[in-house]
C-alpha cells in the first residue's frame, strides 16, 4: 500500500531529513512510526501526502507513483487519504457537522449522502450529539475525535495520523488509539506517527523507528499480537 524504495529527502537548506529509506506497509496493516523529533517522521508523512516530493528514490502509494504525479492530480490522490493532526486543524468558524463534511463537499457528495455519511462518522467517534456545536465548545479529546471523523468520513484507503495523542491525557490517548485500531479492523491501512512509546508498546502493531533520517528498526511485534 505504501512503498518507499531508497527514498531520500533533502531540504533546500541542505538538511537531510530522510536517507535512502526502503520500507513497505501492507494493505490493511496498521503501523506506528516513531523516533525523536527531527528524526524524519513528519517528512515521511509529508511525502506520503504529497506535500513534499522525494529528492531521490521512489515512493508509491495505493499503486500510484508519487514522484511523477502532476499538480492537478494531487487533489484527487489526497481524497483517498485521511489525515489526523496533532492540533486537529479544525475550522473554528464551522460547526462540527460542517468540519466533518468538508472532504465530502470537496468531492462533491449529494446533500443527502453527505448527511448520512457525516452522521455515520460522528457516530463512530461517539459525537453524534455534538454535530451542531462549534469546535471551541468541545474538549481537547472531543476536538481530536472530530478530526478523526473528518479523516474517515469518505472512507479513505489510508489513514495517516501525526501525533494524534500529543495533547491528550493517557486515558483519552488510549481511547483515540483504540479508535484507529477499529478502523484498521475494517480494512483501512493505518500509519500513526507518535513518540508515546509506552502506549505503542502496549499495542500489537509493527513499529518503524527512525533516527536521524535512517530507518533503524522495524519490529513486527508478532509475539505480542499472537500471544
Amino acid at each position: 500500500m505504501i512503498i518507499l524504495d531508497q527514498t531520500s529527502k533533502r531540504y533546500a537548506g541542505g538538511h537531510e531529513a530522510l536517507r535512502s529509506i526502503s520500507m513497505q506497509v501492507e494493505k490493511g496493516e496498521m503501523v506506528f512510526l516513531t523516533g525523536h523529533s527531527g528524526a524524519g517522521k513528519s517528512t515521511m508523512l509529508k511525502l506520503i501526502t504529497r506535500i513534499e516530493v522525494p529528492t531521490s528514490g521512489q515512493i508509491r502509494v495505493n499503486g500510484q507513483l508519487l514522484n511523477r504525479m502532476s499538480k492537478s492530480q494531487v487533489p484527487f490522490y489526497r481524497r483517498d487519504i485521511g489525515m489526523v493532526f496533532q492540533n486537529h486543524q479544525l475550522l473554528m468558524d464551522r460547526t462540527v457537522f460542517d468540519n466533518v463534511a468538508l472532504p465530502l463537499r470537496v468531492a462533491g457528495a449529494q446533500p443527502a449522502d453527505m448527511q448520512r455519511r457525516v452522521r455515520a462518522a460522528l457516530d463512530k467517534v461517539g459525537l453524534l450529539q455534538r454535530e451542531k456545536y462549534y469546535p471551541q465548545m468541545l474538549s481537547g479529546g472531543e476536538q481530536q475525535r472530530v478530526g478523526i471523523a473528518r479523516a474517515v468520513v469518505n472512507r479513505p484507503a489510508i489513514l495517516l495520523a501525526d501525533e494524534p495523542t500529543g495533547n491528550l491525557d493517557p486515558v483519552l490517548s488510549r481511547e483515540v488509539m483504540n479508535l484507529f485500531a477499529e478502523f484498521n479492523r475494517v480494512g483501512t491501512t493505518v500509519m500513526i506517527a507518535s513518540h508515546d512509546l509506552g502506549l505503542i508498546a502496549r499495542m500489537p502493531y509493527r513499529v518503524l523507528t527512525l533516527r536521524e533520517g535512517n530507518l533503524v528498526k522495524s519490529s513486527a511485534l508478532e509475539g505480542i499480537r499472537n500471544g
Binding site: S72, P75, R78, R79, M83, Q89, L91, P103, R150
Partner: peptide, 16 residues
C-alpha cells in the same frame, strides 16, 4: 489561510 490549507489537504482542487 488555515481553511485553504485544510481544504487543500482533504483534496480540494485549485478551482474549488
Amino acid at each position: 489561510r488555515d481553511e485553504i490549507m485544510v481544504v487543500k489537504l482533504v483534496g480540494a482542487t485549485q478551482s474549488f
